[in-house]
Design a protein around this nucleic acid. Structure first.
Length: 225
DNA sequence: CCAGACGTTGTT
DNA sequence: GTCTGG
DNA sequence: CCAGACGTTGTT
DNA sequence: GTCTGG
């Protein structure tokens, strides 16, 4: 997947979760029309009590064993390797999460030009990418840096004309199983497939979104013909 | 055994 | 932390 | 992914 | 051209 998505509103009740971290105000106060890598993103993960809770982490994974957070960090993890790669396997086994969004961008190449497309559900509902997260600390007792990567897979019929990868979008019925630490790696991996055809829609949007500085409704303006 | 890597996308 | 390559 | 920078000395 | 930052 590309490095951009949107979160314009949050329907926490529908997702069956509660707000737990103060930093989450960042999302309730300011809708995001262009969430870029390294920014704070909204996730749902299991609390210590085993219940789903909503919070904020940074987009771009820093594994717990890193000596220093690298400047360039993976924002995506391939479904084909997320269970085996040294970078992701622990997070995949123990720290799966949901990354909340209500749409995402993908660029289609027209020769040298790059045409951004916006992909969403027709009712603009909030949905969940499959994510894996990690907690990094400089040293014992320091404040943690929590980070996340979104899992990608092969495109469905809507995405195929635009791009050769797409983020994994989990159906609500699968949210609990993805989050559950007891779910086997095999069963978790089975959830990592392209979203069913026929629900998502894609449309070209203004190139305004190409600059991470732009974060407003204009990012969703239909592309000029 | 130790040292070094550990990622994706897209592009060629 | 854990795996791979030498 | 795209946009934007692409530098040093010395000072805080 | 290539790297960094968002």
């Amino acid at each position: 997947m590309c490095g951009r998505y949107t979160l314009r509103r949050i329907d926490a009740a529908r997702l069956g979760v509660t707000f737990v971290e103060p930093t989450f105000d960042e999302f309730t106060d300011r809708p995001r029309f262009n969430v870029a890598p390294s920014q704070a993103v909204a996730v749902v993960r299991l609390n210590r009590d085993g219940k789903p809770a909503m919070g904020a982490v940074r987009w771009g994974l820093v594994p717990h064993w890193a000596k220093e957070p690298p400047k360039v960090r993976p924002i995506n993890a391939r479904a084909e390797t997320v269970g085996s790669s040294g970078m992701f396997r622990q997070a995949f086994a123990r720290r799966r999460c949901l990354v909340l969004a209500d749409g995402f961008y993908e660029w289609r190449r027209d020769g040298t030009a790059k045409q951004p497309h916006f992909i969403r559900f027709p009712d603009d509902r909030v949905f969940a990418f499959a994510g894996v997260w990690e907690r990094w600390r400089e040293r014992e007792g320091d404040d943690p840096l929590d980070t996340v990567a979104v899992v990608t897979t092969t495109p469905n019929a809507v995405m195929a004309p635009i791009h050769d990868r797409m983020p994994v979008i989990l159906r609500p019925d699968d949210h609990a199983a993805w989050l559950d630490k007891e779910t086997s790696s095999g069963n978790a991996a089975a959830l990592l497939r392209p979203y069913a055809d026929g629900e998502l829609v894609a449309s070209p949007v203004d190139r305004l979104v190409n600059s991470p500085k732009n974060d407003g409704p204009d990012c969703l303006r239909p592309a000029a013909k």
